[in-house]
Design a protein around this nucleic acid. Structure first.
Lengths: 151, 151
DNA sequence: GCAATACTTGCATGATGGCGTCAGTATACT
DNA sequence: AGTATACTGACGCCATCATGCAAGTATTGC
């Protein structure tokens, strides 16, 4: 039987087994640097902080607001307990997604939108700049030679 | 006492309470559209798929390889059980981060680097393009008037 | 000092999710 | 046909974590 597609494969067409040689093949040293960039930007801690729906909603709230928000204020947007909101905001601040400034008895959580956008953009760049090309064998050749470690 | 800083506040300087009016204030309709864009791009499912260190390592492996990889092959890179690798790759494919093509008895998981980069770049754009400005009161005014819902 | 506000922290609970083992299915090879 | 390969699915175990409640701390206002 012919190759059949699993799951969804939305907008962009499926990556062909042998990619159409993108850009120029970089030097091994440069390739290693770009590989390292991908590893560095693919930080589990960042994504863990963003993985919870409630936390994400709170982040969006502060982000859309644009100014510093107190915990009380953010909690007003959300149906969860106050302590939950306080904890989530603290997690987001610890992950560098919000900045926290204490003034008297209230804490102002301000969006770090620029930093966040910058982080995602760099990640996108790291992925884009990585031109695989010569790293391993092609899929076709692999079928003959059998599997081997790819990293 | 003066305002003191919590946690870390790395590279970029702290967002001042009253931001230096970025760009031109958009129309309410346009503002709503940009807010919606942030909500749309801030998808918990995407981040959940990326939140696990092992899964992230496997994604990086396929990404760096650039070509389609079989489960067996990817499993060779990693110290975890074969079934774990298979499951992780399937999760990544379901999240649209890899494409899965079955050919005979082996499944080729190919990187969707372009789609992934595009997704992060759009997220960055959505955040960047959002100019808060007039959405709520400033932090300073808020201190006098007391907290109010921000979203 | 006393009370109210703003937030933090500890604790119990329940849900989610990652992991390995093992059995099952589908395809390829001889 | 029989065996090996490549993967999927169903359990159970365990760690992590999100949540709510309730008690504690720190600051402000009277």
């Amino acid at each position: 039987m012919m190759a059949s597609v699993y799951y969804r494969m939305p907008p962009t067409p499926a990556t062909p087994a042998t990619p159409a040689a993108p850009a120029a093949p970089s030097s091994p040293r440069q390739a290693a640097r770009k590989k390292a960039a991908i590893d560095r930007m693919l930080d589990p801690e960042l994504f863990k902080a963003l993985a919870d729906p409630t936390r994400l909603k709170l982040l969006a709230c502060v982000l859309k607001c644009g100014r510093g928000c107190s915990v009380t204020e953010v909690a007003a947007c959300c149906s969860v307990d106050f302590s939950v909101v306080a904890r989530h905001l603290s997690v987001l601040a610890r992950a560098g997604l919000l900045s926290a400034t204490k003034d008297g008895r209230t804490v102002w959580y301000a969006p770090r939108g620029d930093a966040l956008a910058e982080r995602f953009r760099r990640l996108a760049d790291a992925i884009d700049e990585w031109t695989p090309a010569q790293c391993c064998t092609t899929t076709a050749k692999l079928k003959r030679t059998g599997p081997r470690g790819c990293c």
